[in-house]
Design a protein around this nucleic acid. Structure first.
Lengths: 149, 149
DNA sequence: TTGACTCCCATAAAATCCCATGATATCCCT
DNA sequence: AGGGATATCATGGGATTTTATGGGAGTCAA
């Protein structure tokens, strides 16, 4: 499970340490790490290859000319399979550095099956936004054991 | 898995470097590379021989006299089995160079089980279109209800 | 013998591996 | 429970390998 948040340094070679807990989770389940452009936010999203596989399979099930297929294919094209060096770091591809406007700090935010990588400023912005929504609307109504057919 | 995008040069002998990640994927799974004319776009499509086999099987399940079967057989006829030279390059057959209107640059776009090879201008067009769809319609439904069973 | 194609070698730039270090965190022994 | 010993983590930088690309020599066929 990808959980908790940590602020790590990006060095001149675009290397960052993946939080050890994330890395151990991937290693334990013998999974490759995939990084890609978030479709919703200005951040990188990280997840396991097998989870990404689900989206790849979906492409074949859609009408090849459909809008969803278009967007999913582009998502694959903007994805990178990465692996750790001996000390648990990955290199963030230049495309993704630019997309998420990263320079020398990355905020890792675990959200369960995947995690986000933000620039510190973008992270702050999102964090404040969620706090504000919470104040205005109160806590979300969560249905924990919803039936998933 | 064919993922990510890269812009490679086509030299005077019509040679291009296949992105190393694609090549390694094929070598690791001991697969031949097949190139053929895309049925949907003005680009070359590349995939593994075993996936091509699935297309062939699909034809057998169609009415042999149908238009679909006819078109698919034509596609087979324009397919090429290619192999790398010692430094990981392939030669793009002239038919395919013309079909995709390639000259001296090729954009490799990995979409999972296969990849596209575009001319830079055609790639741009495709890229912009998907971005526009994303803006107008938002991410595909299956991204939004990420089931975490 | 003239193209067209295939090997083979060369190279600059980039990616990756390898070793080192200070800072934490964890263990273990009394 | 204290406190030193040990492991782990995040980070830095140099050495090595791989990648993408160019060009020439050999080969085969018509």
């Amino acid at each position: 499970m990808f959980l908790s948040t940590s602020h790590n340094k990006i060095d001149l070679k675009c290397r960052v340490s993946i939080p050890a807990t994330y890395r151990l989770f991937l290693e334990k389940s013998d999974e490759q790490l995939i990084l890609f452009k978030s479709l919703q936010f200005k951040c990188i999203e990280g997840t396991s290859l097998s989870r990404m596989q689900r989206y790849i399979n979906a492409i074949d099930e859609l009408d090849a000319m459909s809008d969803d297929a278009f967007v999913l294919r582009m998502m694959m094209a903007d994805s990178f399979e990465t692996k750790f060096d001996a000390s648990g770091r990955i290199v963030i591809p230049e495309t993704l550095m630019n997309f998420a406007e990263l320079s020398n700090k990355a905020v890792f935010m675990g959200i369960g099956e995947s995690f986000y990588v933000w620039s510190p400023s973008e992270y702050e912005k999102q964090y404040k936004k969620s706090k504000q929504i919470l104040e205005e609307k109160g806590p979300p109504k969560l249905i924990l054991n919803k039936k998933t057919e």
